[in-house]
Each structure stands twice: as structure tokens, then as C-alpha cells.
């Protein structure tokens, strides 16, 4: 079998979505792809396709109208994936905290792995955040590829009733996770 492990951590493709921001952090992400702070030398390409990307960059305090598109993009990305919140508005709501059309921060809604501060965050901080996201991506890859029997030690009775119960519980867990 062709081995994907050594290739997967070295050139992540990013997907960028603007969930209601003032465009300051988006201009700084565009400046990361320009000649002075070039992240294309790490192999990073900005695609618009969720099925082909590893890192999800979100900017802006999440407004009520853009929540539906955010969930669709998050569920269409394949595992393993990393979510990065860029800017003070995305981490905790920023200046827009407690306004009437805004959720206070991205982690009220989907699980987040890396928080980058700043208003607007400079390209140097975004590159630091991307390097940390690569380390988290590598540890997630190792966890998925553990052998199956060692991982499922706890529920060993493989009878029909137990398998049906665990299948029903799997459906409930994902809906709770998305609404958090």
C-alpha cells in the first residue's frame, strides 16, 4: 500500500472563510501569500474547495446569518483537520462582544484548536500559528492510525445488543458536538 504518512504533514492546503469580519485580518492573510512573507515556500496553497484542504482559517465574530454555511464547510472537510481562529474577534468576540447579532467567539459553536490574538493580527503571528497547527495535525494523524483492537479495549463484548446500542449512541454524539 502506498504510505501517506510522511507526505501528509509537510504541505497543508488551507481553506479561508470570512464569517462577518471587518476585512482587516483577511488582508493580512492575503499579505501572507505575497512576496515578503511567502508561505507558499512551505507548500501552502489557498484553495476554495473543502474536500481538498487540511487547515480551516476563520475570521470575524460569527454572525447569525453565516452560521449555516460554516457548519456545512466544517462537516465536508475530511479527517484529520485543524481549525484556526484568527484575530481577537474570532477568539472571544472582540469589540463586538454582546451585540445583538453576534455569537461571542467561534468556540461557542465549533471546536477550535489554535487561537491567534491581535487586532489586526500581523503576518508573523499567523505564521507562528500555522507552525503550531502543523504539530497538532501530526499528533492527530498518529492517533487515527493506531491499530483498531488496542484502541477499543473498553467495550469488548461484541454481542448484537451492545453493537446496536453503540450504533445509536454514535448518532447522538455528533449532533451534540456541532451545537456546542
Amino acid at each position: 500500500m502506498f504510505d501517506f504518512k510522511p507526505i501528509r504533514k509537510k504541505s497543508p492546503w488551507i481553506l479561508h472563510y470570512n464569517a462577518g469580519s471587518c476585512n482587516g485580518c483577511d488582508i493580512e492573510i492575503l499579505a501572507c501569500l505575497s512576496p515578503k512573507y511567502d508561505i507558499e515556500r512551505f507548500g501552502v496553497i489557498n484553495t476554495g474547495n473543502p474536500k481538498q484542504s487540511d487547515v480551516f482559517l476563520v475570521t470575524g465574530p460569527v454572525t447569525f446569518r453565516s452560521r449555516e454555511r460554516l457548519i456545512e464547510l466544517y462537516t465536508q472537510m475530511p479527517e484529520p483537520k485543524v481549525v484556526m481562529a484568527v484575530g481577537s474577534c474570532t477568539c472571544t468576540g472582540g469589540v463586538f462582544r454582546d451585540m445583538y447579532n453576534v455569537e461571542n467567539g467561534l468556540d461557542r459553536y465549533i471546536p477550535v484548536d489554535v487561537y491567534v490574538p491581535g487586532c489586526a493580527s500581523s503576518p508573523e503571528l499567523i505564521i507562528d500559528g500555522l507552525v503550531k497547527a502543523l504539530e497538532i495535525l501530526e499528533s492527530k494523524t498518529k492517533e487515527i492510525e493506531k491499530p483498531f483492537k488496542l484502541f477499543r479495549e473498553a467495550s469488548l463484548d461484541n454481542t448484537i445488543v451492545n453493537r446496536r446500542n453503540s450504533a445509536l449512541k454514535v448518532g447522538e454524539d455528533t449532533t451534540d458536538d456541532e451545537k456546542n
Binding site: C91, D107, R108, V112, D113, V114, P117, L125, G129, I136
Partner: peptide, 16 residues
């Protein structure tokens, strides 16, 4: 100096 980069275990929003 610049701010530090937070990870999931820091619980930035919940503590605040």
C-alpha cells in the same frame, strides 16, 4: 512584545 498563541487546553473563553 506580541501576544502568545493559545491552544485548546488554555480555555480562554470559558474562564473569562
Amino acid at each position: 512584545k506580541k501576544g502568545h498563541i493559545g491552544i485548546k487546553d488554555d480555555k480562554i473563553n470559558d474562564d473569562w
